[in-house]
Simulated assay, not measured.
Amino acid sequence: MSPLSRRAPRLPAPVPRGEIVLRAAGVSVTLGGTRIVSGVDFDVRAGEVLAILGPNGAGKSTLLGALAGDHAYGGSVELVGREVHDWPSRELALRRAVLRQNNSVSFPFPVVDIVKMGRAPWRAITSVEEDDRIIAEELLRSDTFRFAERTYTSLSGGERARVALARAMTQRTGLLLLDEPTAALDINYQEQVLAIARRTARQGSAVVVVLHDLAAAAAYSDRVLLLADGAMRAWGAPAEVLTPELLSEVYRHPVRVARDADGALAITPVRFPDDDAAPPAAHDPRSSERTTP
């Protein structure tokens, strides 16, 4: 056996639909001496989208960083049965792809070269033709093919976000971790990106996405994980977790939840009054006045 073959990574085995891809048990994260996340338990299965929700400072991005292997953590994070931090870096990159909030690139690389970086873990495993086919697919799917030769630094924030998504998608992994992928996008591309995430799950991957848009989470996810102050408040199907009582409490603002004409969950905040009166009080569980249409 040659030295090169001995160093070849173990290729990912397909995970059957419905089987657990990622399992978190008692996960805690401390950064700078401050406990940011504590006692989080959930799993994600092949074929499903899990949305991580919560107000600012709830620990959503920190938790995603632990799931990705970017942060040290307490407890356990298992990716296909093995602790995330035990995977060699290249083998980890073959099994999970990450779209982070910060996608800054300071050098004026062409867009196509940025997207190509997602194929780096597969170097010497797949052919150049296969890599080129996947890169073209993701450029088209993210609607970035038309400016593939432009420099990344010339793009708008929304265009850069779509390029970063295309780069993550080219890794072709069984787990896709997305940190606020719609934050810089207009409504058209927000819907496109979440449709891509759902389609990726339906094709057999597991997808974890951090979102602020509660209605979008209800529409595109199979399960949701609701965080508050670094702790897990609820985990389950959107209709079970996204209740007016719980959302009003967690977000400290009254929230209405109803069904629209298509039967989808419609989630809206109670608006502040136009005058200088005090803002509406948070939901009072003794009254449904502010949380029903």
Score class of each variant (00 low, 15 high):
Ser2Lys: 09
Pro3Val: 02
Arg6Cys: 13
Arg6Gln: 15
Arg10Thr: 11
Pro12Asn: 10
Ala13Cys: 03
Ala13Gly: 04
Pro14Asn: 08
Pro14Gly: 01
Val15Arg: 03
Ile20Gln: 10
Val21Asp: 03
Gly26Gln: 07
Leu31Phe: 12
Gly33Thr: 05
Val37Met: 06
Ser38Asp: 12
Val40Ser: 12
Val40Phe: 06
Asp41Ile: 08
Phe42Gln: 01
Arg45Met: 06
Glu48Pro: 11
Val49Ile: 02
Ala51Glu: 07
Ile52Thr: 11
Gly54Asn: 02
Pro55Thr: 10
Pro55Ile: 14
Gly57Ser: 13
Gly59Ala: 08
Gly59Glu: 02
Lys60Ile: 15
Lys60Asp: 12
Ser61Lys: 05
Leu64Lys: 03
Leu64Tyr: 10
Gly65Ile: 10
Ala66Cys: 10
Leu67Cys: 15
Leu67Ser: 00
Ala68Phe: 05
Ala68Asn: 02
Asp70Thr: 03
Gly75Asn: 05
Gly75Trp: 02
Ser76Cys: 11
Val77Met: 06
Glu78Ala: 15
Leu79Gly: 11
Val80Arg: 02
Arg82Asp: 05
Val84Lys: 00
Ser89Lys: 02
Ala97His: 03
Val98Pro: 02
Gln101Lys: 03
Asn103Arg: 10
Pro108Asp: 14
Val111Ser: 07
Val112Met: 07
Asp113Gln: 13
Met117Glu: 04
Pro121Glu: 08
Ala124Leu: 09
Glu129Met: 10
Asp132Phe: 04
Ile135Asp: 07
Ile135Gly: 07
Ile135Ala: 01
Glu138Met: 14
Ser142Thr: 14
Thr144Gln: 13
Phe147Met: 10
Ala148Ile: 02
Ser154Pro: 06
Gly157Lys: 03
Gly158Thr: 03
Gly158Met: 08
Arg160Lys: 14
Arg160Met: 14
Ala161Gly: 11
Arg162Gly: 14
Arg162Cys: 15
Val163Ile: 09
Ala164Tyr: 09
Ala166Phe: 07
Arg172Glu: 15
Leu175Arg: 01
Leu177Ile: 15
Leu178Pro: 00
Thr182Glu: 11
Thr182His: 07
Ala183Arg: 03
Ala183Cys: 04
Asn188Pro: 06
Gln190Ile: 05
Val193Lys: 00
Leu194Ala: 06
Ile196Gln: 04
Ser205Tyr: 05
Leu211Thr: 03
Asp213Val: 08
Ala217Trp: 01
Ala217Lys: 04
Ala218Gln: 05
Ala228Tyr: 12
Ala228Glu: 15
Gly230Tyr: 12
Ala231Pro: 02
Trp235Pro: 00
Trp235Thr: 02
Gly236Ala: 07
Ala239Cys: 12
Val241Trp: 03
Pro244Cys: 13
Tyr251Gly: 04
Arg252His: 04
Ala264His: 10
Ala264Tyr: 02
Ala266Pro: 00
Val270Met: 09
Phe272Asp: 15
Asp276Ile: 01
Ala277Trp: 13
Ala278Val: 00
Pro280Tyr: 11
Ser288Ile: 09
Ser288Thr: 14
